[in-house]
Nucleic acid binder design. Structure first.
Lengths: 333, 333
DNA sequence: TTGTAGGCGTTATCAC
DNA sequence: GTGATAACGCCTACAA
């Protein structure tokens, strides 16, 4: 490996001068600088970021800990983070916790030992301890998609309750009366908020909240499938479904297809969070759209801000959701 | 920050002993070890990976440079890599090059300066130089999904040509005669192999290769859309389409839907590489399935192997593809 | 403006 | 088996 000393010798200057040329915040004689840069090129020198990070005791890495890489919502979000990170001079390390609190803990530990500059996380549990670990270590944290109870951290959310309410109200307005709900894990604020929106819409409409029409699943495809199957098998006879995330919606649809139910005449469907190619599915799928990319951007900006001003006020951003009505929820004549 | 010296003082031993306990490859008196571990717990010590990496002059990070995080093929692949990495004691840094050679170069430079233990890459160009940079620096590289001309590296591919041939032959057997092809960028082996499979199937069937039926796009949704529009607008009048990747297939479908063409009676469709929820699309989509997760696993294993034996023979793995026939390619009565 | 020198936190090589 | 001690490669006071 060629070090800064090799360059220094080759250019006939001291290592300090090489460092200064490389970093550029100090004045260096143009002639020397020139010699240095050409030596760098000639020797094919690249600076060792590990040594640099140790010396400066900070890195330029952000850990983005998400709960599912295969969920398009999170990948879109990651792109948002990435775009901000790059312009701010950081790189993104993507960690996939798989909704598994243990994996999550491991990644947080890694973020700490690797001296990551900051962490953006969609927590897969309410285990506040892990996030507190980061905070206590002085590692800036931005929580996304889910709200954490205890620690005060910068947070980027979407308006889950309102979105769910819109979705459910839309079904009510279409004349559906037995509206089922496949909710997410009860310990995630995302899930409870969406359930709350559903509940409120029913209440506003004067419809009963029938527990037989409610299932809780795990925000995954299989969970949605099984919840739907259970709704059908238990004779709850819903005439419509509100599913609380994209993958569960897909699972529920798979189930309905397999059972040969026609959408929306047998049962109408609205999903929370869009899926790619929603308009290729037949019937096209009504969804509550979330600004996934923008969530990522905002999170990135919050992190950048906090890195610059470690004790700025804690910010909580709530982005709007939007109901996109397509065929799956339109009552037939 | 609490260092190894703090722990040493607290436990009444030397820093060297703490290090030995932490790393565990040397014998340490159980009594001392006990004191060290409890001091570690008490002080909340975590080792500084940056310092450690500098001292050991290696890291436990793999860079996985993929060309599109939003393509389900790559996310599935990443999961495969990740699973191997974790069991082998490495972490994965996901880098999204966006099919942009410049971004790719930056990530490669970063992998080098960050002293990454290894790189898994789906190159977005034929610019061999970047990969050579890695190789020259002694950084193990596994190339996936695309074949690189010059440098001999471990590679994991799928049987693109055969898959494409199967797909096209299937269309021929269904009685289609004007089979269009939307191919990928001509500088990617993946694209040329798939085109070659298409060409060969036509040739075997004694069908002419009509240039008016061929378009080259960029492996993205919009590119597929535009290529399909061009095929329709230029009066090429295809009765079937073979699209060379998943996102372009989606784009082409969007176009066909918009133009109100019926699949498969107006035009049959087969795509290369599956998309999630292919069976929710109507008609269901015939695809050439690739073992994306397995590609990732194999790449991870190749990298692990090379890390252990730096000058083992270069391996080239070709995984099989499989035609999954669904409704979009079945000729109507 | 430039060079010297110390140290970031760890691990590995010595002696003991 | 354990403890000093010297690196790993870089940055940055400080002195010149």
């Amino acid at each position: 490996m060629v070090t800064i000393y090799d360059v220094a010798r080759h250019a006939g200057v001291s290592a300090a001068t090489v460092s200064r040329v490389l970093n550029g915040h100090t004045q260096v004689d143009p002639a020397l600088a020139e010699r240095v840069t050409s030596s760098v090129a000639e020797l094919g020198y690249r600076r060792n970021a590990v040594a640099r990070n140790l010396r400066r005791s900070r890195t330029t890495l952000w850990a983005v800990i998400i709960s599912d890489v295969e969920n398009p919502f999170f990948t879109a979000m990651v792109r948002g983070v990435e775009d901000i990170a790059l312009t701010a001079g950081y790189s993104v390390v993507l960690c996939n916790s798989d909704e598994n609190p243990e994996k999550e803990s491991n990644y947080i530990a890694a973020a700490l030992t690797e001296q990551m500059a900051g962490v953006i996380i969609s927590p897969s549990s309410n285990r506040v301890d892990d996030v507190k670990l980061l905070l206590d270590a002085g590692c800036p944290v931005v929580v996304i998609d889910r709200e954490l109870q205890g620690p005060r951290t910068d947070t980027v959310l979407v308006d889950n309750e309102h979105g769910a309410e819109l979705a459910t109200t839309h079904l009510v307005e279409q004349g559906y009366r037995r509206i089922a709900c496949i909710g997410g894990p009860r310990w995630l604020s995302t899930a409870t908020s969406r359930y709350e929106g559903y509940r409120r819409a029913l209440s506003t409409a004067g419809l009963p909240l029938d527990p037989a029409l409610v299932r809780y699943a795990d925000f995954r495809e299989r969970g949605g499938f099984e919840a739907m199957a259970s709704l059908l098998d238990d004779g709850a006879e819903p005439d419509a479904l509100f599913a609380a995330n994209n993958l569960m919606t897909v699972g529920a649809l798979e189930c309905l297809v397999q059972r040969e139910r026609t959408i929306p005449s047998d049962i109408a469907v609205v999903g929370f969070d869009s899926i790619p190619w929603a308009d290729l599915i037949r019937p096209t799928l009504t969804t509550v759209a979330q600004p996934a990319y923008e969530v990522g951007r905002q999170a990135g900006q919050l992190l950048t801000r906090r890195l610059a001003k470690p004790d700025a006020d804690v910010t909580r951003i709530v982005l709007p959701t939007e109901l996109q009505v397509r065929a799956s929820s339109i009552r037939q004549a």
